[in-house]
């Protein structure tokens, strides 16, 4: 397993958001974290990235191992440098930087020294971004911003990507494009943990899924085997 979370608890001040999350992600697989709004999917992602900062009255407990290294207590930049690229909910594109600058700013060789993902390969993967390379981040459409957010993650040549609600607010046609993009990434050997509310999307792009409810994993199954009953029970669909 490349990522293993054991009994992870997360707190925002006095609010106990994660109640002992345990999950694992295998090398080269795509795993999905499903759940309704506010169950702790994004908090799980932020916890993995070390973003629950004690200075902001946040706290994390439990064990999080990535590639055998304990993440708990590490700072965000050190976690990213282990080979985890985080694509946050809301995209967080730098608005005053051009598309190309948004990519260049993230460019880094992977932990193994590989530079497989660079401007050229990213533009081949996302030709639309090359067409918009001089446009400022805040001038891009929602779909373009999402592509850029994923491409920016790839520029770090990561071992693993955390994709947080990447389909949020996008038209169905764009969601379909994103699904094939994630499938292609998995085919390229990138390990992916994806937080989603969109079950159809999750079923297309992931092999395994965990369902979160009130900050705890309540169900774990191969995504394709998710029954209508399970979906109705946990996701209200």
């Amino acid at each position: 397993m490349i990522l293993e979370l054991k009994e992870v608890h997360g707190y925002y001040d006095k609010s106990h958001i994660l109640n002992g999350v345990t999950l694992s992600v295998g090398q080269g697989t795509s795993v999905c974290l499903l759940g309704r709004n506010g169950v702790g999917k994004s908090t799980t992602m932020k916890t993995i990235m070390g973003m629950l900062n004690p200075k902001e009255h946040c706290k994390t407990e439990g064990s999080m191992k990535f590639d055998g290294k304990e993440l708990a207590g590490m700072k965000s930049h050190s976690i990213a440098r282990l080979g985890i690229a985080y694509v946050p909910q809301g995209r967080h594109i730098f608005p005053t930087l051009s598309t190309e600058e948004n990519l260049k700013v993230a460019a880094r060789a992977g932990v193994d020294g590989s530079c497989k993902w660079n401007l050229e390969t990213v533009y081949t993967f996302f030709p639309r971004l090359e067409e918009r390379k001089d446009s400022k981040g805040d001038k891009l459409s929602g779909g373009e911003k999402q592509m850029l957010a994923v491409a920016r993650g790839l520029m770090q040549n990561p071992k693993m990507m955390l994709l947080d609600e990447i389909t949020e607010g996008l038209a169905p046609i764009i969601v379909d494009q994103l699904a094939s993009m994630v499938q292609n990434l998995v085919a390229e050997g990138v390990t992916i943990l994806i937080a989603e509310q969109n079950v159809k999307f999750a079923m297309k792009v992931s092999s395994d899924c965990y369902i979160l409810e009130r900050g705890a994993i309540v169900h774990h199954q191969a995504t394709k085997e998710l029954t209508a009953e399970t979906r109705k029970k946990y996701l209200g669909l």
């Binding site: 700072k75 965000s76 990213a80 985080y86 930087l97 700013v105 920016r152």
Partner: peptide, 17 residues
């Protein structure tokens, strides 16, 4: 670029390593 990026989103800059 990082200086300009940090003006709008400091946590995201840290997330880039």
């Amino acid at each position: 670029m990082l200086t300009r990026a940090i003006i709008s989103d400091r946590p995201m800059v840290a997330n880039l390593g």
